[in-house]
Design a binder for these strands. Sequence first.
DNA 1: AATGAATGAGGGTTCATTCAT
DNA 2: TATGAATGAACCCTCATTCAT
Lengths: 219, 219, 219, 219
Amino acid sequence: MKANAQSGLGVRAQQAQQTRQKILKAAIKVFAKSGFAGGRVDSISKLAKSHDRMIYYYFGSKEKLFVEVLETLYEQFNEAERRLQLDTTDPVAALSRIVDFTWRYYLTHPEFVALLGSENLHRGIHVKKSVNVKSMSDATLSMLQPVLEAGQAQGLFREDISVRNLYLMIASLGYFYNSNRYTLSSFLGENLMTDDALVDWQAFITDAVLRKVCIDTSA
Amino acid sequence: MKANAQSGLGVRAQQAQQTRQKILKAAIKVFAKSGFAGGRVDSISKLAKSHDRMIYYYFGSKEKLFVEVLETLYEQFNEAERRLQLDTTDPVAALSRIVDFTWRYYLTHPEFVALLGSENLHRGIHVKKSVNVKSMSDATLSMLQPVLEAGQAQGLFREDISVRNLYLMIASLGYFYNSNRYTLSSFLGENLMTDDALVDWQAFITDAVLRKVCIDTSA
Amino acid sequence: MKANAQSGLGVRAQQAQQTRQKILKAAIKVFAKSGFAGGRVDSISKLAKSHDRMIYYYFGSKEKLFVEVLETLYEQFNEAERRLQLDTTDPVAALSRIVDFTWRYYLTHPEFVALLGSENLHRGIHVKKSVNVKSMSDATLSMLQPVLEAGQAQGLFREDISVRNLYLMIASLGYFYNSNRYTLSSFLGENLMTDDALVDWQAFITDAVLRKVCIDTSA
Amino acid sequence: MKANAQSGLGVRAQQAQQTRQKILKAAIKVFAKSGFAGGRVDSISKLAKSHDRMIYYYFGSKEKLFVEVLETLYEQFNEAERRLQLDTTDPVAALSRIVDFTWRYYLTHPEFVALLGSENLHRGIHVKKSVNVKSMSDATLSMLQPVLEAGQAQGLFREDISVRNLYLMIASLGYFYNSNRYTLSSFLGENLMTDDALVDWQAFITDAVLRKVCIDTSA
DNA sequence: AATGAATGAGGGTTCATTCAT
DNA sequence: TATGAATGAACCCTCATTCAT
C-alpha cells in the first residue's frame, strides 16, 4: 500500500490533476476577459504556467475547454445556491434573501457574467453541447419554488406568479446592472459601482420583486 | 444646372456615400453576429460587396468602424424613442407604453443587444471613445422623466422613485430576456421566443413596473 | 499681352510647376529618411500638401520620381562644384579646397548621402535609367583634373596619380564618415559629430590626401 | 548511451538549430539584397524552405531577426580579424596587411556592406538595440593599436596619428569603393570591378595609408 | 506526463497604383 | 489641373492546432 493511497491517486496523477486545474482556472480568467473568440490559447497556457500543448492534451480543443469553463462556473453558481439556507416559514424574508443572493452573486462574480455574455454572443453554441448545464436549472428553480409555494400557501404571495417569471425577474434585475455596467456608465454618465449606488439598487430591486409578488405591501 | 443639384452632391460623392453606408450596414451585421473580436474585416467587406481597403479608407480602422457602428445603433434607438408619442395626462398608460417600447425594441433589434453585449465584454473601451453616445442618454431619461413627474404630480406614482432606477428596471427586464435567451433556453429547457412566451413576459414586466411605481394598484 | 508674360507661363502652368516642385522637395526628404523601398508615396504627397494622384500625374510612378530626385541631388552637387573657384596657380591650396569642399558637402547634405546609400542598396537600378547622371561625372572630374595636372606640371604632385583614384580617395574619406556615422557611433562608442571631431577629421583627411599626392611634404 | 550524446543535443534540438540557422542565413541574403524595409519576411522563410511562423518562433519579429543578422555579420568580421596573424616586429608589413584585409573583406562580403548601408539608412536603430555590437569595436581597434604603437616605438610611424583616425581612413578607403560601386559605375562610366581596377585600387590605398602614417617613405 | 518544433490559414492593415470625373 | 474613390496584392504577424519525441 502506497503512502498516497488515501487520495487514491499516484503522484503523477495528482500532478496531472493539478495541471488540469491550473489550466481551467487560467481559462476562466482569460475567457472572462476576452470572451471565447478573443481569448487566446496561448494566453491561457502562459497564465497557467503550462504549454499550449497541454490544453489539447487535457481538453482536446479550445472549444471543449470553453465548455468545461462554462460548466464549472454554472456548477459553482449552483453550489452557492445550495449553500443558501432558506426558511420557508418566512417566505418574504426568504424571497428577499434570494434576490439579494442573486444580485450579489453576479456582482462578485464578473467572470460568470462575462462568460454568459460571451456565450450568448455566440448564440449558445457551447452551452448546447453540455449535458450538465441543463440539469442545473432544476436546482435553481427548485430553490425558488418552495419559497413561492410557501408564500402562496400562507396567502402572502399572489397566485398568478410563475416560478419561471419570478426567476427571470430576479435574474434580470441582478444581471443587467452588472453585465452592462460599462455601457451604462458611459450612457448614464455616472459610476454605478460606488457603494451608495450598489446599496441603492439592491434596495430598489428587492422592493420591486416584493411589490410584484406580495399581495399586500401596505404593511 | 445639373440633374443632381438637388442633393447637393455629385454622382461620385453620392456613390461614395452609398459605399460607406453599405460597409456600415454590413459591419452592423457582422459585429452583431460575432462581436468585435470575432468580427472579421474581410467578412464585412465581402458582405458589403466592397474591399477591405475601403473600410480603412472610410473608417480608418476596425476599431473606429466599430465605434461608428455603436453610435449608429445608439442613434437609431434614440430616434425610435423620439418617435414615441407620450400622453403625460395619462401617466400610467404612458409608462406602460415605455415599458412595452423598450422591451419590443430589444426584441426586434437583436443586433443592438448583441453589440451592447460585445461592447461590455470589452469593458466599454469603444463607447468611451465616442463623444456622441454620452449625449444620447439625456434623450432616454428626458423621455421618462416627464412621465414620472406627471404621475407623481397627479398623486399616482410613488415619490421615492428615481428616474435612473426606473430606467434601469425597465431596461433590465426588457434586455436580459433577449440578451441571454440562448443560455436561458438551455438553462430553463424551454423556448422563450414563442408568441405565448413573449406575450406572457411583456404582461409580466409591465405589471411589475406599475406595481413598483404606482401608489395604489388595487384598482 | 498678359501680365505674366515675362515668366512665359500662364497662372495655371505656374501653379502646376509649383505643385511639381513641392512634390519633388517632399520626395527628397522622404526618400532620404526612409530610402526608396521605405519611402511611402502617401508620405510624400502629404508632406507636399498635395495628393497621391499628383505624383502619378507629374512623375508617372514612384520609381520615376525617385530617379528625378536622384538627378536633382546630383545636379545640385554639380552646381556646387561649379561654384568652386579654384586657383590652379596654387595646386596644393586648390586640392585642399576640393577635399574640404567634398567633405563639407556630404556633411551638410545628409539627404544626398542617404539617397546614394539607398540607391546602392538597390544596386543602382534607378541611376542606370538616368541619362543625365552620367554626364555629370565629367564635371566632377574636370574640376579635379586641371588641379592635378597643374600640380604635376609644377613638379609638386606625383606623376603616378590618376584623377580617378584621386577622386575616389577624396570621396571615400569624405563620404564614409558621414554615411556610416550611425553604425560607427555604436561601433566606436563615441559621437563623431561634435565640432572637435569634425575639425579633427577634416585636418586628418586633407593631410592624408596631400601626403599621397605631393612629392615632398617635408616642407 | 545514445548516438548523439557527443553533441549534447537530441535529434530534435539539432534539427531545430538547423532551422534557426537556415532562417538566419536566408535573412542575411534577403536583407542584403533589399535592406531591412525592402526585405520581406515571406522571402526569407521561402528561401529558408521554412515558414513565416518559424521566424517569429525563433526570432520574435522581423526587427529582432535583423538585429541578429547584424550581430552575426559583425561577429564574422571580428572573427576574421582575429584570424589575422600580425607580426608587430615589422609594423609596415603588418599595417599593409590590415589595409589589404579590410579592403578585401568588404570586397568579398558585399552582404556586410549592404547591411551596414541599410542600417545607416535607418539611422542605426537596430544596432543601438544590440549590446553585443559595441563590444566588438574593441577587437577591431585592439588589432590596430599594437601595430601603430610598435611602428611609433620603432620610429617608423608618425606620433600624431590616432588609432581612431587610422581605423577610419582604412575603413573609408576599403568601404566606399564597394558600398558605392553601383552609383560610381554610372557616375564614372566604368566598371570598377575588373581585376585590374581592383588591384590598382588596392595598391593605391595601401600606399596612401603608408604615406599618411610613415615618417619616411623614400626608402 | 510533458514539451519543443512545426504548420498553414488567416488576422488587421498598408502598399503603389488606376479609375472616373 | 486636380481630386475623391476604388483596387487587389502584399505587408508583418498571430491564430488554433498537430507532429514527433
